[in-house]
Design a protein around this nucleic acid. Structure first.
Lengths: 249, 249
DNA sequence: CGTTGCGTTGAATAAGGTCAAATAGAGTGG
DNA sequence: CCACTCTATTTGACCTTATTCAACGCAACG
């Protein structure tokens, strides 16, 4: 893209990170807004914060300042239990909004950790509520985003409550595939940003079970796995796996 | 309470079902509103609908008209999978708000079924959004309610993902106990409105496992069970059960 | 009274978990 | 660039837990 004459470097920087030029805008908070709305949301976002791999975006118990939209990178959120057990509650990628759990009590109820170097847009909640007062379509969209998270959670419950190990993993891979596709990436080939243990935690299984199931899928030519690189060979068979009681070879 | 002279029967009826005199108002949508706000929310609720045991409040796929606040009774929501499997995603009692899952796509994403004769207050979403535009504290509270649901869901994921059968059941009983207490009922003695199978579905277990675990708790004098009647004998021991790896007699 | 739905209990089985050992990468300091 | 670590992953053997299958009891209801 040729740089536009007449803009100072600062303006260019600003433009590059503005919602109005962000490729994620239709996936993210400002989806569906007009130009004016976009600019207002843009003013809301008070800074783009880089997070390095392994760093916490926020920790359970910390006060709620802002919600965060992921601009680049990959994150997980983990629920903690007093006894030290932890459960990965979700994996989050570009365009996802994080921190919704904190609105209920003004404290974060889970940890958010970057699984690769990432960048997030920080959105002060008070300002967002103020602005969504002025822009009804923003209010509606925000409600939809929260509701979508609830629906996602119900899906995870269904997975954890009713599916067997291989079904869970197949559902997980298909879900990732879909979400990458929605963001313009390959739906068949991608890197897992998380460890086997993190996948296991999310799916309510042990890391050895994940490893075995991946090997099995590989043997049966449903996928190719090499470390964190995954290539889906037979998407249909993977879909077919879900809903099979058991020995459906 | 003596009836007030000068009110027609219709007014009495209205008063009896108004948010402002509802004992649940601090648990429900209008929590924290002033008198004026209460009246406005009250006008929002366009009718109190009775639901008989076994009837659906809404079905998965149905269009979203309204949210529902439970006034009396007990309900469950079930997520369905194409292959016929179903997962109970939650049990709901007085003061709970149902239907939040439908906001994302304007279609309900789960079934809501009454487990006993119930009465719900129907709250048209459009009107609610309109009113929460006028009353900022209502908007905030609505956001908190949605967020609280997300936090609850995370808790269920933790339960389904990391706990063993007896831990799950203990957590379930303690959760019910707490919620009954918050509504002014006994925290130690209550009726299960749902079948063993429904408890099992919610906890990701089979009904036989629930039955066995209840019997075990009974044997160990943690609870008394007779059919659907439960009495918690040793709340502390029940709490202690959660977080124990295994043989903690 | 038989029927029907719900609940309990036992025995056998299967699915994952646990433990342990070997291997493979990724990152680091020399 | 290499050796060294540390962590992640794979795989096997064995064990535990919950499921499955089956029989039976109980209570409500027509």
């Amino acid at each position: 893209m040729p740089s536009q004459p007449g803009l100072s470097p600062i303006d260019v920087q600003r433009l590059k990170t503005a919602c109005s030029t962000c490729s994620l805008r239709e996936l993210c908070l400002p989806a569906g807004l007009d130009q004016r709305g976009l600019e207002q949301v843009d003013r809301l976002v008070n800074r783009r914060r880089p997070i390095r791999r392994g760093d916490y975006l926020y920790r359970s118990g910390a006060g709620l300042d802002s919600l965060y939209a992921i601009r680049t990178g990959f994150m997980k959120s983990c629920v903690l239990h007093e006894d030290g057990r932890e459960q990965v509650a979700g994996f989050h990628m570009m365009g996802d909004l994080m921190g919704l759990d904190a609105i209920s009590s003004s404290r974060h109820m889970c940890d958010a950790v970057a699984l690769e170097d990432s960048e997030v847009c920080e959105i002060p909640l008070a300002a967002l509520e103020q602005l969504s007062h002025d822009i009804p379509s923003l209010q509606q969209h925000f409600h939809r985003i929260m509701s979508r998270e609830i629906v996602r959670d119900y899906g995870v419950m269904l997975l954890l409550g009713t599916m067997r190990a291989e079904e869970r993993l197949a559902a997980f891979l298909l879900n990732l595939s879909q979400r990458f596709a929605a963001r313009g990436y390959s739906s068949t080939e991608f890197h897992l940003r998380m460890t086997r243990e993190e996948i296991g935690s999310y799916l309510g299984l042990k890391l050895e079970t994940i490893s075995r199931a991946l090997s099995r899928f590989h043997e049966e030519n449903l996928i190719e796995v090499r470390n964190k690189h995954v290539k889906i060979i037979d998407m249909e068979a993977l879909r077919g796996l879900i809903g099979q009681p058991s020995g459906a070879s």
